[in-house]
Design a protein around this nucleic acid. Structure first.
Lengths: 151, 151
DNA sequence: CGTTTTCCTTAGCTAGGGTAATGAGTTACT
DNA sequence: AGTAACTCATTACCCTAGCTAAGGAAAACG
């Protein structure tokens, strides 16, 4: 344990292996989750966008695209689909007429709640296989993963 | 903290929120990593398969498909691509002529090493933004994520 | 033996992203 | 003020990476 905070040596074997495992695990689990979509008719990214909106209240398509690490045209399509499903509203931006403001509807709110319940039911199946200690590790790591995703 | 190991209450708010964050973070980071592919011309899943082979030494297409959570036809194509790139060999199975044995070549070994170096270079950029404590949390969680992916 | 099952493969399809090009609106620079 | 350069959203088109359905050959089972 002799690394400083700022210049950790990532070519060191142990860290390299850890990084490798982390990447592999994240990708595999991501594929898994993609299939375990709690709400039919709503893609994982659409869900994620709704989640973001729930936290931020509102956002422009460009902001959402950056946040989800998706290209603007993709976000245009996603937002359009969400609007068609009545989960989101699109208003003109007050200060800048190029932009638009995306806001979630009450239906979206309700749907997220419903979806959260289904998700928990699914995870209950997996929960039995993890110890309390393992769950604690996941909870601790979640914010870090989030941070990493936004770096 | 009053949950037993076996019957944790997953409808409890904190766990539900944690699970939500975890899912969101994993998916976003997955998308991110997908773009940061260290070796052009090699998809994330192909990389993952090579990683698995590096650990297991050899496997049948069916085993690989199960491990990567992919359907058999997909694995057939992936393996064929890897063979075309000279990263993998396909031999008939000694005991069962329906099956085949997939083994990685020396080129794959070398490529994985090279790729590991590139990956670390990329991660070094992110490393500066994380504290040692945060890295520790990630390291602790990686095996759990892996386990979760295989449940 | 014949039937059923297992493993891999072929063929055809789709979803969910990406790039390139466009148009309208804003900012910056004389 | 006028114009050049930039930014945001969109449109049009393409491509990757998975899927399902169907089939052929080998093994297992009765």
């Amino acid at each position: 344990m002799s690394y400083s905070k700022d210049m950790r040596d990532l070519s060191h074997g142990d860290d390299a292996a850890a990084v490798n495992d982390l990447r592999s695990a994240v990708m595999r689990l991501g594929r898994r989750l993609k299939h375990q979509r709690v709400d039919e008719s709503l893609s994982p990214t659409e869900m994620s966008v709704l989640g973001t909106l729930a936290r931020c209240g509102q956002a422009t398509p460009g902001e959402l695209a950056r946040r989800e690490h998706v290209q603007p045209p993709s976000m245009t399509r996603i937002v359009a689909l969400l609007e068609a499903k009545g989960l989101v509203t699109l208003e003109p931006h007050p200060d800048d007429r190029r932009q638009k403001v995306v806001r979630q509807t009450e239906e979206a709110e309700a749907m997220l709640e419903e979806s959260r319940r289904k998700r928990n039911a699914f995870l209950a199946g997996l929960a039995a296989e993890l110890t309390e200690d393992e769950w604690a590790k996941l909870r601790a790591a979640a914010p870090v993963l989030e941070k990493l995703a936004h770096l």
